[in-house]
């Protein structure tokens, strides 16, 4: 556990007690730590970029077994992000529901891996179906985060 996290409650309690007694300011100014919405490197950035991202990691499951755990973790994230990425498009509700269902099925398939080759093939098929839906989007839909 981060030591700062452990001591902060104690510092705040002490500060409250001292403050109530009129001992003035006793909490040190916070460290400069700019909060940002952290986006991992494997975030596809857009729905259009998701199918190739899935295919690439599905291929890694077979080609680099040593890297399978990392690839699986990234696939789990990407499949989880897909409904939100699809929300940032003009997909109508029916198509969005299809995308969300595809992502849910992909996540379920990933949770029960079995044979890596079969898993990679199933995920590639998911990516293909996703790409087919993406192809229906009108031109001008954001393809990639700048």
């Amino acid at each position: 556990m981060n030591r700062r996290h452990v001591t902060l409650p104690i510092r705040v309690l002490v500060a409250l007690a001292l403050g109530s007694a009129g001992c003035g300011r006793s909490v040190a100014p916070r460290e400069v730590e700019e909060p940002t919405h952290h986006r991992p490197a494997h975030h596809p950035g857009s729905l259009a970029a998701a199918p190739p991202a899935i295919r690439a990691r599905a291929a890694r499951l077979v080609a680099a077994p040593a890297d399978a755990a990392a690839a699986t973790a990234e696939l789990r994230d990407i499949l989880r992000w897909i409904p939100q990425l699809a929300a940032d498009t003009e997909l109508p509700r029916g198509a969005w529901d299809d995308v969300a269902a595809l992502a849910a099925r992909g996540s379920a398939r990933l949770a029960a891996p079995g044979d890596p080759t079969a898993l990679a093939a199933d995920l590639a098929a998911t990516a293909d179906r996703l790409a087919a839906i993406v192809a229906t989007l009108p031109p001008g839909t954001p393809a990639e985060e700048p």
Binding site: V12, R25, V27, R30, P35
Partner: peptide, 13 residues
């Protein structure tokens, strides 16, 4: 009291 003891953004992280 909290406004005095906790500078802006203290609890963000």
């Amino acid at each position: 009291i909290l406004a005095v003891l906790l500078p802006p953004g203290t609890l963000q992280n």
